[in-house]
Amino acid sequence: MLHMFAFAQSYMPIQGSTFAKGVDSLFDFTIWASIISFVILIGGLVIFVVKYQRRSDNDKTAYITHNVFLEFLWSFIPLCIFMGIFVWGYVLYKDMRQFPDNAIEVNVMGYQWGWTMTYSNGKQSGNELVVPVGKPVVLTMTSKDVIHSFYVPSFRIKQDAVPGKRSKLWFQSDRLGDYEMFCTEYCGTAHSKMIGKVRVVTQAEFNEFLAKDKSKMTLAELGQEAFNVKGCVACHSVDGTVKVGPSFKGLWGSTVNHSDGTTAVFDENYARTSILNPQEKFVAGFANVIMPTYQGQVSEEEITHLIEYIKSLK
C-alpha cells in the first residue's frame, strides 16, 4: 500500500515530457507533507478521543484557554511549508512559460468538438499532433467558437484555447510513443469526445510525415485526412458505434431511412447534400442533432475524397 503513495510515478501517467519529473517531485513532496500533517492532526485527535473518554457526566476538565507558544508554532510552521511549496511551484511554472526560440512551431485551432493542427509547412492533421522526439515544440493556440483547453496528462501541460486570443504552450518530449490528449474546458455536447493523440516520433518519421505531400496519397487516404481535419471524426465514428451522429461503417450503398419516414440510397449525391445542407433530411433517431453546414468550408475535391473514404469503409 505504501508503494501506492510512495512516488507519484506509481499512479501518475508516464512521464512523457521534461516537465513531468519536476512536477512529480513537487507533487511527491506535497503528498508526503500532507500525509505527515494528517497523521499528526488526526492521530492526535484519535489518541485524545480514546484517552479522555467521558467517565461521568460531571467530569472536571482542565480550564486551559490558550498557549501562545504552541499557537505560534502551528501557524508559523504551516506558513513556512506553504510558502516553500508556493516558491517551488512558481519556479517550475516559470519554466513552462519560458518559450525556447529554436522550437518547432505548430498552430492549434480548437473548435466544437475537435482540434486542427497546422504545421509550419502548411500541412494539417486533425486531432493528432505529430512531434519529433527530443525537440522543443511551441503550440500557438486559439479557438473558433468557445473556450477549449489543450491537456496532455503525460506531459503535465494544459492551456486554454480562448477565442479572440493567441495562447502559447510548449513542451519537449524525450520519449517515443503515443500519448492521450483531452479537452478540459467544458465546451458542450461532445466535450468528452474531443480526445486526440500526441505522437512522438523519430526525426526521420517526422520529416516524412511533413513531406507526405498530397500527390502520392490515394483518394481514400486524402478522404481520411479530410475526415479528421474537417472535424467529421468528432461526431461520426468509422467502427459502427454511435457518437453524436450516425456511424459511416457500411454506409455506402445502404438504404437510409429518415425521421420523416422517407428512405434514400446512400450514393454520391446523397453524401454531397448531407455535407453541404445537412438540415434537409434527418436520419431516423437523429432528428434533434444539429449538424452544422459545411457550405464554403469543404471544396468539391474534398467532397470526392470523403466519398471515396466512405466507400472504403466496408
Binding site: 516537465f19 519536476g22 512536477v23 513537487l26 507533487f27 506535497t30 503528498i31 507533507a33 500532507s34 500533517s37 494528517f38 492532526l41 488526526i42 485527535l45 506553504f82 511549496i85 508556493f86 517551488w88 511551484g89 512558481y90 519556479v91 517550475l92 511554472y93 513552462m96 483547453s149 491537456y151 496528462p153 503535465r156 501541460i157 494544459k158 478540459t184 474546458e185
Partner: peptide
C-alpha cells in the same frame, strides 16, 4: 478527518506547477 484531506489537497491545487496538471 475529511476537511483535513480537503484542505491539504487545496494547497496542492494552489501550487501553480501542480495546478497546470490537475486543473479541471
Amino acid at each position: 478527518f475529511l476537511f483535513t484531506i480537503g484542505g491539504v489537497t487545496g494547497v496542492m491545487l494552489a501550487t501553480m506547477a501542480i495546478d497546470v496538471h490537475l486543473h479541471d
